Amino acid sequence: MSSGSIEEPGDVRDCVLIPGGGRQFEGRQNVSYFEGISAQSAGSKALCLHVMRLPPGGHAEPHLHADHESAVYVISGTVEHRWGDGLRERMLVLPGDFLYIPAGVPHAPYNASDTEPAVAVLARTDPNEQESVVLLPDLSVPDR
């Protein structure tokens, strides 16, 4: 059994463990994240994976990822995903649901509960934690 390394022909790389309960930080989108896999934490070349926590009634600032796709898996809570031109499109994303967000699509998640936090796992094809985040200050999150 290997002790944390994967060997490929002509290439030796180390696997990296990021212990649970890792560093928490605030993203540019005004959302709390728990650090997972990124270029900075694990040396990832094409993937970023974190846990997002939205407080009751909380939302991210409108933003997009210009060249990178995103995927979301909701663990708990109900997230209202707002996207598109003027963030006029809406859908509820429930625990167990997966959501795909294409590159370049304006979006902002919103916690639909006034009492429970929402928790989701986020993956992006940009390995740098905040490099591809483009804030959209001209957009505001529409009222409920």
Rank of each mutant, 00 (worst) to 15 (best):
G36V: 10
I37K: 02
I37L: 14
S38E: 05
S38Y: 02
A39R: 15
A39S: 14
Q40L: 11
S41G: 02
S41C: 03
G43R: 09
S44D: 07
S44Y: 06
L47W: 00
L47K: 06
C48Y: 04
L49K: 04
V51I: 15
V51N: 08
M52Q: 12
M52C: 11
L54E: 01
L54M: 05
P56N: 08
P56G: 07
G57N: 08
H59D: 08
H59A: 13
H59I: 01
H59S: 14
A60S: 13
A60L: 03
L64V: 04
L64H: 10
L64G: 01
H65I: 06
A66H: 13
A66L: 13
A66F: 08
D67E: 13
E69S: 03
E69V: 09
S70T: 13
A71N: 04
V72Y: 03
Y73M: 11
Y73I: 12
S76W: 10
S76N: 06
S76Q: 12
G77P: 07
T78S: 08
R82Y: 08
W83I: 05
G84F: 06
D85T: 14
D85F: 05
L87S: 10
L87D: 10
L87I: 11
L87N: 10
E89C: 03
E89N: 14
M91W: 00
L92A: 13
V93C: 11
G96F: 10
D97S: 15
P102I: 02
A103W: 06
G104I: 04
V105M: 11
